[in-house]
Design a protein around this nucleic acid. Structure first.
Lengths: 106, 106
DNA sequence: TTAACATATTAGAATATTCTAATATATAAA
DNA sequence: TTTATATATTAGAATATTCTAATATGTTAA
């Protein structure tokens, strides 16, 4: 009954890094090659590769090779929903803070 | 456009620890005092207190004092939905693996 | 007051994560 | 084959997280 929390934590750990979140968001509606991810994210090749490796090992993404390129995509689109809920909670919170700062009534 | 990923990652970091997930799950439908959490989770007082402090600082839980006791509850029930989606993805995955091991057809 | 209870905080060792730089591997083109 | 391109892996320093043990703080009851 306790082991599920370890697995759950391992999965959430994947999303506890801003670079991996950015990669996840890039892949949300299309698969991409590593080169494309590098170009759009402006991060180093080694770093992207390491993060993709972590995401793959936790089953968040899957990859396939096509010639020289390797393409990554999300393994389970359900996770997008979880991602979006968290983002929604955060943006609501930011909006609330903005209103307080600006002096707008709720 | 990048700062949201840092906030998002900070929030997910809260869920990247099995003890905090256990506490979150205890609080999913009722508020609890620290003593109650200690008793049901069988973890040390200091450790629980530290984890609650982290959860509170990230806005996942809120607390109120009532006499000697301090009661914690979830700040935003929406997050339960995200928690459950991740859990669902994991249990589906475990079930698939079980079937493969046991030799059941999909 | 003082004692007892509930909770928080601190210090520090053990462990884990992250980045950069360098190197390795796999594939395709020349 | 060699060369160029795409991606992965490794090593290691810097940083962050986690736990335990000890101590501090706040509240109520005696």
């Amino acid at each position: 009954m306790k082991e599920i929390y370890n697995l759950h934590a391992e999965m959430c750990k994947v999303f506890s890094n801003p670079i991996r979140l950015e990669i996840f968001n890039l892949l949300r509606d299309k698969e991409m090659s590593v080169t494309e991810i590098i170009n759009t994210s402006k991060l180093s090749q080694a770093n992207i590769s390491q993060h993709l490796s972590i995401m793959k090992s936790k089953g968040i993404v899957i990859s396939k090779r096509d010639g020289k390129m390797i393409y990554y995509k999300l393994s389970n689109p359900k996770i997008i929903k979880a991602f979006d809920i968290i983002k929604e909670v955060l943006t609501e919170r930011l909006e609330k803070n903005r209103k307080i700062l600006v002096g707008v009534k709720a």
